[in-house]
């Protein structure tokens, strides 16, 4: 019986990367289940593109609580998502998937070698996960997902105003950090991937102004839209991020490497 990965994110080796045996690439074919409005899912896609690893993606219906269905829980016992499969190996959660891809991938490691830089990277990841994500999720849910599910849905304006105010303070700190730095801690790292996913989702909400008002964040975000991947292959990870229409159609981009 086909598992959820085979149903939703099938690997098509026909003509694909490594299918002719030129590289042992089949072992590197990744399958991902997630949702286009989930920052964690987007982080995994960006990391795969940055590290030059092909990844087929499939939609996991978290609105209907599919992560709690037995079929998913048979693979990931606590319902952690996004979920990833590589051959006989399954792992879930953005931090696990990103670390796995980073170690497996073709580009230089996204973890800084200098201990102070590595710690600062982790600090900015923490700020993204601990502080910014809950507020970005409120805006995405209120302004994109709920109205998508129910056209008569009344947006909770108080919740959105509170989220916007809280995010403003956090983004002030990020803007300051980016002043004089091309990337968040100097060199491109996991911190940039975490924040790319969040800022992109924020740009899709009605509150994109809080990004556009901050020059350093806007400069950094715009520079990512043309930045070629970390692995040197001809792919721009930013181009795989979903539009509002993609979200409405529940579409996720797969990572396809063409210049192998």
């Amino acid at each position: 019986m086909m598992d959820l990965f085979e149903q939703r994110a099938p690997v098509n080796l026909e003509g694909g990367y490594g299918s002719a045996g030129d590289m042992k690439k089949t072992q590197y074919m990744l399958q991902l289940l997630g949702t286009p409005w989930d920052a964690d899912t987007l982080k995994c896609i960006i990391t795969a593109a940055e590290q030059g690893m092909e990844m087929t993606t499939g939609y996991l219906d978290t609105i209907k609580g599919e992560q709690d269905n037995q079929e998913y829980r048979d693979i990931f016992e606590f319902g952690t998502y996004p979920g990833m499969k590589e051959a006989d190996y399954n792992v879930a959660g953005a931090n696990a998937i990103m670390a796995f891809i980073n170690a497996r991938g073709l580009g230089y490691s996204l973890v800084p070698k200098n201990v102070n830089d590595a710690a600062m990277q982790d600090f900015w990841v923490d700020v993204a996960v601990t502080e910014a994500t809950p507020y970005v999720n409120i805006l995405v849910q209120e302004q994109i997902i709920q109205p998508m599910a129910d056209s008569s849905y009344k947006v909770d304006q108080d919740a959105c105003a509170h989220a916007k105010e809280a995010l403003s303070k956090i983004l002030d700190a990020l803007d300051k950090q980016l002043t004089g730095n091309t990337y968040i801690i100097g060199k491109y790292s996991f911190a940039d991937i975490h924040w790319t996913a969040l800022i992109h989702l924020l740009m899709l909400t009605d509150e994109s102004g809080i990004v556009q008002q901050r020059k350093q964040i806007l400069r950094w975000y715009e520079s990512l839209s043309t930045r070629k991947s970390n692995c040197g292959q001809n792919i721009v990870s930013f181009s795989l991020l979903p539009s509002k229409e993609n979200i409405q159609r529940k579409e996720l981009s797969s990572v396809i490497i063409e210049d192998f």
């Binding site: 931090n95 696990a96 990103m98 670390a99 796995f100 170690a103 201990v115 590595a118 710690a119």
Partner: peptide, 28 residues
Amino acid sequence: TYIDVKGKGVSLIPKKARNLGLQNYWID
């Protein structure tokens, strides 16, 4: 991360990608 680097002997970060993924899965 900082304490691990400052510590004695080998880092606690697994070298194998699969173990690294599992480590972070449990942290998540």
